[in-house]
Simulated scan of single mutants.
Amino acid sequence: MANRAYNFNAGPAALPLEVLEKAQKQFVEFENSGMSLMEMSHRGAIYEKVHYDTEKLLRELLSIPEGYKVLFVQGGASTQFAMVPLNLLRPETTAAYVATGSWATKAIQEAKLFGDTTIAASSEADAYNRIPSISELNIPENAAYVHLTSNETIEGTQWAEYPDTGSIPLVGDLSSDILCQPVDVSKFGVIYAGAQKNLGPSGVTLVIIREDLIAKPSLTVPTMLRYDTHAKVDSLYNTPPTFGIYMVGEVLKWLKEQGGAAGMEKRNREKAALLYDLIDGSGGFYRGFADKGSRSLMNATFRLATEELEKQFVKESEAQGFVGLKGHRSVGGLRASIYNAVPLDSIRALTDFMRDFQSRNG
C-alpha cells in the first residue's frame, strides 16, 4: 500500500500488513458464520477454536515447557504490576525489584501498596541508561520473587542475559520484547506482556505462569485479580477480548512464517545494527542514550545537540511520512521503536532521512 506510514510508534505499534489485510477480509463474516467474530459468543465452538489455537501456537513459538499455564487477561501490563504482588507476596516475604527505568519504577510503586519491597539492583545513578550487571543483584533470602523489566521502552535498554534466581521465582515484564528473540521460559516463574507492541492490538495481556505459583493469595484479592480465577477456566471466566486474541493468533501465524523467534532475532539484529551504526558513525551529531552494552533491539533512543534541533527533526520526519519518532515526554529526545512488525525497508528509509538531515544541519 503506497500510503502506509513509516510507523515507529512505541505502542500501540506497527502490525504486519499481511495480518491487517487478512483481518479486514474476515472482519464482517468469519468462517462462513454469517457473523463477525466480534459478534460471537465466547462460549461458542468457533471462538473457542480461535482461543485454543492461539494458545497452542504461543506455546510452540515460545517453547513453553509443561507445568505452565497460559492466560489471556485484560488491563495491560500495568494491571500486572498489581496482580504480581497481590498473588505472590506472602507474610514475612519481600518483593525484590530491579530498577531499570520508567516501567520498572511504575511496577515498584505499585508493589509498595501491597507489601514490603526491596530494590535488588538499580541503575538510577546512571539515569537508567544501562541494565545492572547480574553481579550487582542483591536478592534477600526472604524474597517472594525477583521482578525485572526485560526491555525499557522509554530509555531504550534491554537485558542481554537473564539472571538465575535459583529457588526464588523470576518475574519478567516482557511487554516490549517478547518474541523478538528466543527466550528460556523455564528461567521464569511468571512472564507477562501487553500485546500492543509485538503480539497484536491493545486490549490483550499475556500471562505465562508456573502452575505451582497459582495458589490462593494470602491477601484479600478481588476475583478478577486472582491468577487462579483465570487459570481454572482457561481465561474464560468472563468475556475475554475475543477479537484481540484472534489478532494475536494471526500475528503468531505470521511470526511462524518468518522463522519464529530465531528468525525474528536475525531480522531484528539487522534492523538495529543499521540504526545504531548510523548513530555511532555520525561523529556525535546523533548521540545514543543507552550504554552500548545495554542497547535495546526494540527501542533505539538518541539525542541531538539541542531540543530545538530535535523538534525540527520530528517536524521534518513527520512531513516525510515518519510517525512516532519523538521521545517519551518524561525524558525527551528521539526514539525509533523497531518492533517485530516494522519492516527492514522502514529502517532503511529512516537512516536515509537521518543522513540527509545531518548533511543539512551538521
Rank of each mutant, 00 (worst) to 15 (best):
N9G: 02
G11T: 01
E18R: 05
V19M: 10
K25T: 12
F30S: 00
M35K: 14
S36Q: 03
L37Y: 04
E39A: 14
E39Y: 09
S41C: 06
H42T: 07
I46Y: 08
E48Q: 15
V50Q: 00
T54D: 04
L57W: 07
I64S: 07
G67R: 09
Y68K: 11
V70M: 06
Q74K: 14
A77S: 15
S78A: 13
A82Y: 01
M83A: 12
L88H: 07
L89H: 03
T94Y: 05
A96H: 05
A96N: 04
Y97K: 00
Y97D: 01
Y97A: 02
Y97Q: 00
V98G: 12
A99I: 06
T100F: 01
T100V: 15
G101S: 00
K106V: 07
K106G: 01
L113D: 12
L113P: 00
G115K: 05
S123M: 08
D126T: 12
Y128V: 10
N129H: 14
R130S: 13
I131P: 07
L137R: 05
I139N: 06
I139H: 05
A143F: 09
Y145S: 11
Y145D: 12
V146Y: 11
H147S: 14
S150K: 03
S150F: 05
N151E: 09
E155N: 13
Q158S: 12
Q158V: 03
Y162C: 01
D164Q: 11
I168F: 02
P169N: 12
D173T: 03
L174A: 12
S175L: 04
D177Y: 09
I178Y: 03
L179Q: 10
C180P: 00
Q181L: 07
Q181D: 13
P182S: 11
D184K: 15
A193L: 07
Q196I: 00
L199E: 05
L206C: 13
V207I: 15
R210S: 08
L213A: 08
P217H: 09
T220A: 10
T220L: 08
T220Q: 10
M224V: 13
R226G: 02
Y227H: 12
T229D: 04
K232D: 09
N238S: 15
T239P: 05
P240C: 13
G249Y: 02
V251I: 06
V251L: 06
W254L: 06
W254I: 07
G259F: 04
G260R: 04
A261V: 12
M264P: 00
R267C: 01
N268A: 12
R269H: 10
E270A: 15
A272D: 02
L274P: 01
F285A: 11
Y286T: 12
Y286D: 11
A290D: 04
G293E: 13
R295L: 07
R295C: 03
N299P: 00
A300E: 09
T301D: 04
T301L: 09
R303G: 02
E307V: 13
L309N: 02
E310W: 06
Q312K: 15
F313C: 07
V314T: 06
K315C: 07
K315R: 15
H328I: 02
H328R: 04
H328Y: 13
S330C: 07
G332H: 08
G333T: 10
L334E: 06
A336K: 13
Y339C: 14
D345Y: 06
S346Y: 05
I347P: 00
I347C: 10
D352A: 15
Q358P: 00
